[in-house]
Every structure is written in structure tokens, then in C-alpha cells.
């Protein structure tokens, strides 16, 4: 009796580290610690390190360096090549992102019809998306090969001269084609989203006299808009960072490849990589890296800001699991 009454007395409350709240918090942090520690060590710290390097004139090899403040940033911004490669990268995104997002939506809508061999079509269209960038680029390089490639062979059938695809502006077209080959990845995601659009809503709209197009625009698109936004953002970020296809479409191989990338394919990350590992200008390259990081953050931020009004969430995305 006295023991029970003393246990509710404020003076003998269990110590903080004995409370359920503490234990739960401890468990939570134990469980998420791999990711928290990993993010600090493998993402935040490297970025901070790169920022530090960007304030120096370090060449990556010699032990000595000098702090130069924001000189590297001024140099990057005043270098015309910066704007040229940003322009090329932006152009690639302007071509590839809309075609990928809209194209994969159209293909998904077609596949969502009751067409014969649906599963077969889906697999065939998805197949190229499974091919890693290295193999995809090598494959297209063989197709666009000057003497033995299929593209020039087809042009030959129409009496056209062989084109040298690996130089000049042409190689930018090859790069675009490589990027578009993976369109099937988006198709699969869109297809899954389309199958979750409530049939009842579509039927109700049909009863109200809405045609195919009207139902698509007013019911389907709003319902799957979160998926479309996510795809739009991730595709944009992915395309802006394009590196491997542009590198492998160069005539050189190994360490020589990076400096032999044709001018029209010198995307921003190609320039960054070359500044680091071909020209050993670590300070300057780190400044480029950070500027690009900020640019990508800004673009992502703008997308989400704009989408706040246009994207429809059936479930509040900020609502958490059962504990929130």
C-alpha cells in the first residue's frame, strides 16, 4: 500500500533515462543511425570538404596550398566555357526531359488499354531501361559507327552519304538518343499509377458525358500528378548530371577519354571531371561543383514551389505513419 502510493509521488518519479519516452527515442535513433551516420560521413562531410577545397588553389597533388577566398567562384563565373557547358547541359535537359515524361505517359496510357499481348509489350518496352548506361552507350556507338553502323546503312538504302556521327553537332544527337532509350522505366511507374486511378471516378465522369480526352485531363492526370512531378524532378536532376554517356561517346579510351569529348558533348559534369582529373585544378573544379550543386537545389526548389498549387495529393504527403 505504501509502496504503491510512493510510486505516484513526484519525488520518486523514474529517472529520465528510465522513461518510455527516452527508450523510444533511443530505439528510434539506434534504428536510423546507419543512415544518419552514413549521410553525415558520405554526403554532408564530402560536400563540406569540397567547399573547403573550393576556397583554395590546391592542385590535388602537392602538399601545399593557399587560401584564395572566393576567387575560384569569380573565375568560374567569368569563364565563358562555364556558360557554354551550362547551356549545352540545359539544352540536353530541355530536349530529353519533356520527351521522356510525356512519352512515357503516352506509352503507359496506350498499354493501359486492353491491347493484345499487353504483358509482352510492357516487357519489351521496359527491356532497354534495364540496360546500364555503359552498355547502352556502347550499343548506340555501334549503331552510329561510321562504316559498320546500322544508321549509316539505313541512310545508304535511301541513297544518302555516310555521316560521321561521332563528331561535331551530330554526336549531341547520338547522346540524346542514348538518353531516350531508357524511356521504359517511366512507363512502368506510370502504368502502376494509372492502374490505381479509381475506375469509379472514370465511370462517373463518363456518365456525366465526359469524353476520352476530358476524362484523361480532368480525372487521370490530376490523380497521378504526384507521380508525374516526382518523375519530372528526378529525370531533370538525372539529365543535368549526365556524365557516362557523354564520356563514352568520345573517341578516346581510359584516362584520355575525358579530354577527347567532342565540344558539343562537353556537358557541365564532363568539364568538372576534366578540371579535377585531367588538369588537376582541384580548387577551381570544386567551385564548379558547388555552383552546380546550388543550381540543382534551386531548380528542385522551384519545381516543388510551383507544384504546391498544381499537384493533387489524395493523401497528405506530410502525414506520417501511425506514430505521427
Amino acid at each position: 500500500m505504501s509502496a504503491a502510493s510512493s510510486s505516484v509521488h513526484p519525488a520518486s518519479r523514474p529517472r529520465f533515462y528510465q522513461t518510455t519516452r527516452w527508450r523510444q527515442g533511443r530505439d528510434f535513433y539506434l534504428f536510423v543511425s546507419p543512415w544518419v551516420v552514413g549521410t553525415i560521413l558520405l554526403t554532408i562531410f564530402p560536400l563540406a570538404y569540397a567547399f573547403g577545397v573550393s576556397l583554395t588553389n590546391w592542385d590535388g597533388i602537392s602538399p601545399g596550398f593557399r587560401w584564395v577566398g572566393f576567387d575560384n567562384y569569380a573565375k568560374v563565373l567569368s569563364n565563358p566555357e562555364t556558360w557554354a557547358s551550362l547551356g549545352r547541359t540545359g539544352m540536353l535537359a530541355l530536349v530529353v526531359v519533356p520527351i521522356t515524361v510525356v512519352g512515357s505517359l503516352v506509352l503507359a496510357v496506350l498499354l493501359n488499354n486492353k491491347v493484345r499481348f499487353r504483358a509482352g509489350w510492357r516487357t519489351l518496352i521496359y527491356l532497354p531501361a534495364v540496360v546500364p548506361p555503359v552498355a547502352a552507350t556502347l550499343t548506340w556507338k555501334l549503331l552510329f559507327e561510321r562504316d559498320s553502323g546500322a544508321v549509316n546503312a539505313i541512310l545508304g538504302l535511301f541513297g544518302r552519304d555516310a555521316v560521321n556521327w561521332m563528331t561535331g553537332q551530330q554526336v549531341f544527337i547520338v547522346l540524346i538518343v542514348v538518353m531516350l532509350w531508357g524511356i521504359g522505366g517511366g512507363v512502368i511507374i506510370n502504368l502502376a499509377a494509372l492502374q490505381d486511378v479509381p475506375q469509379e471516378l472514370l465511370e462517373a465522369a463518363e456518365l456525366d458525358g465526359a469524353g476520352h480526352w476530358r476524362r484523361f485531363v480532368s480525372v487521370t492526370v490530376p490523380t497521378i500528378s504526384p507521380v508525374l512531378l516526382f518523375q519530372f524532378v528526378t529525370t531533370t536532376i538525372g539529365v543535368l548530371q549526365t556524365f557516362v554517356p557523354a564520356l563514352l561517346l568520345s573517341p578516346g579510351s581510359g584516362a584520355a577519354a575525358i579530354t577527347s569529348v567532342p565540344e558539343s558533348n562537353r556537358l557541365f559534369m564532363i568539364d568538372v571531371y576534366a578540371e579535377y582529373f585531367a588538369f588537376s585544378r582541384y580548387g577551381y573544379a570544386s567551385a564548379m561543383l558547388w555552383l552546380f550543386f546550388v543550381v540543382i537545389l534551386l531548380i528542385t526548389g522551384i519545381f516543388f514551389k510551383v507544384s504546391g498549387r498544381t499537384v493533387f495529393y489524395a493523401v497528405d504527403p506530410s502525414a506520417g505513419g501511425r506514430n505521427d
Partner: peptide, 10 residues
Amino acid sequence: MMPGIITLIP
């Protein structure tokens, strides 16, 4: 949304 290659180099 973190850009992969940007963190990879550092």
C-alpha cells in the same frame, strides 16, 4: 533528390 555524381567526386 541528391545529385549522385556531385557527392561522389569529393
